[in-house]
């Protein structure tokens, strides 16, 4: 019989119980997205890795899996950027600074920082993909000396949809990273590139064997971006993506996020292209049918 203390603890502590947290900053940043800065009760550290997610819990509405968009080097708080889409995210959008929410997590594996250290990094963000990638970009910028060359490519629908505008402006000014962005559709004030994100990749010069290429965006984008990466001869195990799925419990049990035998909430959401290929037939066609 397993009556030891560890077992007793499992019996009494529920992984479904959210931690109390306070919204310390809330800004509507685009028509559909709202930014939240969050502090756990007692300024407890969340202890996350870039690329992980939390379950944002609003009693009476439910939970929604949200990517953490701040770096783990920032310990007193963490940031979430939420697109208004379903029941929970619509209710989240009504919250303001000072309001309380529940947080479970962090969940998932996060980006493979150990392997990426010392290598060149090519980051490609499409649309909302910049949200989880911001946690990685901030981390890299905070530990800039730990990485080789860093290049960031950003694409969004229109200039109005661009998130983290001020921060991006500061990235553009930095001499130690290369930054480029494009919009699908320009407005009269836009002076930058116009076109799909894939159009920026051929112009990038990299040493493929020493490069980790990270892409996050809508499923359909993966296909074309990964094709460009492969053209650059980046090895499949160095192509990294983060997948969107319906994570519900975050504990590898409820089944909603499963791809073949993989629970994305536990083994993902970050995968290499090499891993994606093994999930062929269960992935979105954009994700692995290259």
């Amino acid at each position: 019989m397993k009556y030891d203390q560890a077992f007793q603890e499992i019996l009494s502590a529920s992984p479904y119980r959210p931690m109390k947290a306070k919204i310390v900053k809330a800004n509507k940043v685009t028509e559909h997205e709202k930014f939240f800065r969050i502090e756990l009760e007692g300024k407890k550290e969340l202890g996350h890795l870039p690329g992980q997610f939390v379950q944002a819990s609003l009693f009476g509405y439910g939970e929604a899996p949200i990517s953490i968009c701040s770096s783990s080097t920032q310990k007193e708080y963490f940031d979430l950027t939420v697109r208004k889409l379903g029941t929970v995210t619509s209710a989240l959008h009504k919250l303001e600074s000072g309001d309380t929410i529940g947080i479970r997590g962090p969940f998932g594996n996060g980006f493979p920082l150990d392997k990426m250290l010392g290598n060149n990094i090519l980051i490609v963000a499409g649309g909302l993909g910049i949200v989880p990638l911001r946690s990685l970009i901030q981390y890299i910028l905070d530990k800039r000396k730990d990485f080789g060359e860093v290049q960031i490519l950003l694409g969004c629908k229109t200039p109005k949809d661009m998130l983290f505008g001020d921060e991006i402006a500061s990235w553009q000014k930095r001499a130690d990273i290369k930054f480029n962005c494009t919009v699908d559709k320009a407005d009269p004030d836009w002076k930058g590139n116009v076109g799909l994100i894939t159009s920026l990749i051929p112009g990038v010069t990299i040493r493929p064997k020493q490069t980790y290429a990270v892409v996050v965006g809508p499923p359909i984008m993966y296909k074309f971006v990964i094709l460009e990466f492969l053209k650059k001869e980046i090895p499949a195990r160095q192509i990294i993506v983060s997948l969107e799925r319906k994570m519900k419990c975050g504990l590898g049990k409820c089944g909603h996020c499963q791809i073949r035998n993989v629970y994305v909430c536990q083994c993902g959401p970050v995968f290499t292209f090499e891993q994606l290929r093994e999930m062929e037939g269960e992935c979105h066609e954009g994700e692995c049918h290259v």
């Binding site: 379903g86 995210t89 799925r245 319906k246 089944g255 909603h256 499963q258 269960e282 979105h284």
Partner: peptide, 19 residues
């Protein structure tokens, strides 16, 4: 109880249905 045979089981709020 929830079933993987339901048509919205793996559907996310963006409308993408992964199964």
């Amino acid at each position: 109880w929830n079933y993987c045979q339901m048509d919205d089981f793996a559907k996310v709020s963006t409308g993408e249905d992964f199964r």
